[in-house]
């Protein structure tokens, strides 16, 4: 069964969803959001493919996650942790 997600309809959901199915003709498909299959419209993005991570807002995918940028932010966080800890700790 496919459901629409969230009791908090208008909010910006922080967690990206993984694309599992794309119907190119319909510009729509399904995403996996924390283990739940959810309908999504892909008309606002170009070339969405199964396996992509997207941000879904009110049923529309609005942004594709940039893996390179995600890795850089994680590296930055790691660096901040290392800097704040005493050396050799």
């Amino acid at each position: 069964m496919v459901i629409y997600l969230s009791k908090e309809p208008n909010m910006c959901l922080a967690i990206p969803a993984k694309v599992i199915e794309v119907d190119e003709a319909l510009q729509a498909g399904k995403v996996d959001y924390l283990g739940t299959k959810v309908k999504a419209n892909f008309a606002l993005l170009e070339g969405v493919q199964a396996g992509d991570w997207v941000i879904v807002h009110a049923g529309f995918a609005i942004s594709k996650l940039d893996e390179q940028e995600a890795r850089e932010t994680l590296a930055l966080l790691r660096e901040i942790v290392e800097k704040s800890e005493p050396a050799g700790g």
Binding site: S63, L65, D66
Partner: peptide, 18 residues
Amino acid sequence: NEYSRVVPSDGNPIALRL
């Protein structure tokens, strides 16, 4: 831009055109 994994500098061109 501290959210570059989701926010492209120029935004979403398809959405803006629409």
